[in-house]
Design a protein around this nucleic acid. Structure first.
Lengths: 147, 147
DNA sequence: TCTTGAACCTCTAGTCGCTGAAGGGTCTAT
DNA sequence: ATAGACCCTTCAGCGACTAGAGGTTCAAGA
């Protein structure tokens, strides 16, 4: 029987994060000690490890919820899990492409900047004039892979 | 004199976002019509364009605030603007590296999955066993470039 | 001049995935 | 018995918006 602190240490999660996962129903309500403290067993440790690993791979909590459901029903086809992973891969690839365009633009902007006075600064100039950019960098939404 | 809607359209920004920028002091309080509606001039259009372009390049609003200050004081050296841009470039490069590691892991995970039953699903298996991963993918914080 | 309806206003709350802090209670080792 | 490390709940905050409710203003057409 693990305390929440021990579970946190073993999975590299913060204590508050575990409680947060419980409030949103991603982790089950655990057993409690006499005094009301949470006590976890192996199944809960496994589940949390699964969640954390999914997060490290950039899956959203919603995606992880779906993957957990699949993992809990071992009879059915794994096509669903595959398609969730495919979607995630595609998102990662899109993000990489977008970031590489930004990287190019930033490099160009910086290398042109001779660190003169602000009046002729390339960095500021480029920000002022989008037309000096090579790419569109419209940028869709991009948030992910927390901590 | 532009209405907020016209300004939004010209800069590709949502109306609410402009008002949000005003509440956090990134955009000045504009003039108002008799009836109390916001009215913008060219200087404000330029400023908003600068902000949006900075966002597209992945700068945080804090970084943009600093860049705006620099742009407003054209006498001083542009080394500061340069270093803000350098920092941004470094962040982008780190993010790319991390995403590429994820990409590899996801690809490996997916290609091993023959879409059999969930019991043997590679995707779920990999999530269960971090030890099957090639990389550490510890992942620092990663959020950026909202649109 | 009146009316329509699109666009504007303020204010509040929600998004995602946590994180931190306040103000307490519990557990365990000495 | 007591110290102090750990645990509890609850609430607020982060960044950068986004959405909605409920009301007002504006410009154009009849």
């Amino acid at each position: 029987m693990l305390t929440i602190g021990a579970l946190a240490k073993r999975t590299g999660t913060k204590v508050q994060t575990i409680r947060y996962y419980e409030t949103i129903g991603l982790m089950p309500e655990p057993a409690r000690s006499e005094g009301g403290q949470r006590r976890y067993d192996q199944a809960e440790l496994d589940r949390l490890a699964f969640v954390r690993h999914g997060r490290q791979l950039g899956f959203s909590l919603e995606a992880i919820r779906d993957l957990l459901d699949l993992a809990d029903n071992p009879a059915q086809s794994c096509a669903d899990a595959d398609s969730i992973a495919q979607r995630q891969l595609k998102q990662v690839e899109d993000r990489i492409a977008r970031l590489q365009a930004l990287q190019l633009e930033l490099k160009r902007m910086i290398s042109d900047c001779g660190q003169d006075s602000v009046a002729q600064c390339r960095v500021l100039e480029v920000l002022r004039n989008h037309s000096e950019c090579l790419t569109d960098h419209e940028a869709g939404s991009d948030r992910s892979i927390g901590s």
